[in-house]
Design a protein around this nucleic acid. Structure first.
Lengths: 339, 339
DNA sequence: CTGTTAGCGCCTTCAG
DNA sequence: CTGAAGGCGCTAACAG
């Protein structure tokens, strides 16, 4: 019943009547130039007949390359990382690299474990989208051994290629949109400060306020987890304390949804009473009621560029480059002029 | 600068003053019983000092096991698969297996490519949550070589362990909920029939209607892609044709969102004018306005059980088992009594 | 309990 | 252009 042994190179060689090394060369992309066309054809035919496909893991022992790339992300359940994976997966697959994807849940132990697993598997490189500002030490050792690209989250002082988004600018876009619509009192719901992009968004927000010369008040709240429920809690408290504000900048769309929920529960309306700006432009955000004004980030391109950058390091040993992509404001129905 | 060579077993052995194979045994879980406590301690110390960690891919050549499990899912961007991945990832990691995750986008070529990649990598097993009813042929060959578990989607006639959800029951739950609330005209938005669970949901819906003895009308529309936009399109058309219906059963939450959107745009209200039931209980569905009545599926448990089932095959060669988990109805605000 | 030996499947020198 | 030989790092048999 079981289809018997998996064929090896030797089986192909025997069937084609050549030496295994000749078979190997015939099947490899690089070396196949040095092989007679007829021999090569015979070998390919034999391989096809047996259903032979080379054992990549065995080959890696000899070549020193596993053709795997570690990919570390915070969370499968956030669709923004799905876009990143789509971008980089496509690019890696074109070069026959397979991503080994691990999620950290922004948990320190899981992050460490991820690096261990990637080390044990001898991945040829890593794309890391889950670094926190507190991870420098443990990353440094890894990075010394394995080519690494940071994607989406920076770790200042780590000298590796990076593909980043200008989150300071993103924070500016969000808050200046509100200011331009006449809002003078803004509540900001910040994600954890250990995550670089959240820190940058807050900086951008602050910069706008400062440029406005004290005419705008920014009330910032930091949550431990950037979730719907946490934002709901913060927003409810803010509303209960007396809504001296007319707008909200949430550091991601999930938190914006939490804010919307709290606003609704308090019997107020968005955007009539309170305007809300999110961040990330999650796929569903445009389908909410009201549809969410938010900051869109080029995640697919981030993934693609991160993969390109890593491959250029791996294949041509190119020097580290930092690419910075730009966010953009998407105006929808959750923001209106201040009342 | 670069931390030099990656240490090998030989380096550890030399530092500990033992033979490499002794070092190997000391580091392995299984064999370490047959080693003197002191020797073992010396080896572990040496390994720690050098930062040694075994090359899993080299070891696999000898052991014949790669300690990798292929995981095939339709789509990273759908959070239900994230839950599946969470469940199975946890379980696999406990046994030192690493998942190699590939998405198919429910595209035939990508599905084939996924199987090729997993074959080349010599994964020890596969958990496949992306089979379509049309995939039997190409799966059969793979399954003969590699232990496989089907998760969430069945392929009748394929004799492998399966962890399924009773989607017929799910369809029944959804539609009988509507019937009990007095709805006698229901629009059903069906996902592609090549995907087993969609077919089953439609069967369940039909069964309820038949049991009602022709007192309920079910108008079914099949879409190519189970997306927000497709459902919006179908729903808009249905509304334009004259809303002789009072309720909608969408085969997943995304399509329910599309339906809600179309209803809103047509100037009608949910649940006042039209009730809507979704399927899957996406994380965001409870935060929509109105919050979505839907069918909840145990995805985390599906993942966990699939991993357990596969491991029991791998480790104890247990015979194929089919586990069927039950869906449950979550009543929220998108459904009300028929007007 | 530990050392010796061999070889997993493949690719890559080196010869011819 | 093809064959011969060696070895990547590790672990499993076999001795002792």
């Amino acid at each position: 019943m079981a289809s018997g042994r998996v064929p090896r190179l030797e089986d192909v060689a025997r069937l084609a009547g050549v030496h295994p090394s000749t078979a190997s060369r015939s099947l490899s992309q690089e070396q196949s130039g040095r092989i007679g066309a007829k021999t090569r054809e015979r070998v390919l035919a034999a391989a096809r007949e047996l259903g032979y496909t080379p054992d990549l893991t065995a080959a890696s022992l000899r070549t020193g390359r596993t053709m795997t790339i570690g990919v570390v992300i915070p969370d499968f359940s956030n669709p923004i990382w799905a876009s990143l994976l789509a971008g980089l997966g496509e690019t890696l697959q074109e070069r026959d690299y397979t991503p080994v994807i691990i999620e950290t849940k922004d948990d320190r132990r899981r992050f460490d474990r991820a690096l261990e697993i990637l080390t044990d598997r001898r991945v040829d490189g890593m794309i890391n989208a889950a670094v926190r500002l507190t991870d420098k030490k443990r990353l440094t050792a890894f990075v010394a051994r394995t080519p690494t690209v940071l994607a989406g989250r920076d770790l200042p002082g780590l000298d590796v290629p990076k593909v980043l988004v200008d989150d300071v600018r993103g924070g500016e876009l969000a808050v200046s949109h509100l200011v331009q619509r006449g809002h003078r009192s803004i509540v900001q719901i910040c994600g954890p400060g250990s995550v670089g992009p959240f820190k940058s968004r807050a900086e951008g927000a602050q910069a706008v306020v400062e440029r406005s010369g004290d005419s705008v008040a920014l009330h910032s709240h930091v949550v431990d987890q950037p979730t719907v429920d946490e934002a709901d809690r913060v927003m409810s408290a803010a509303l209960a304390a007396g809504p001296a504000f007319t707008s909200v900048f949430a550091h991601n769309d999930l938190m914006a949804i939490g804010a919307l929920q709290a606003i609704r529960r308090a019997g107020m309306r968005c955007p009539d009473d309170v305007s809300v700006v999110g961040y990330n432009d999650n796929p569903l955000s445009q389908h909410l009621a009201p549809s969410l004004t938010t900051i869109s980030l080029p995640f697919v391109q981030t993934g693609r560029t991160a993969a390109d950058t890593l491959l250029s390091k791996l294949l041509h040993n190119d020097p580290p480059v930092v690419t910075t992509l730009q966010p953009s404001l998407i105006v929808r129905d959750s923001t209106a002029a201040a009342r």
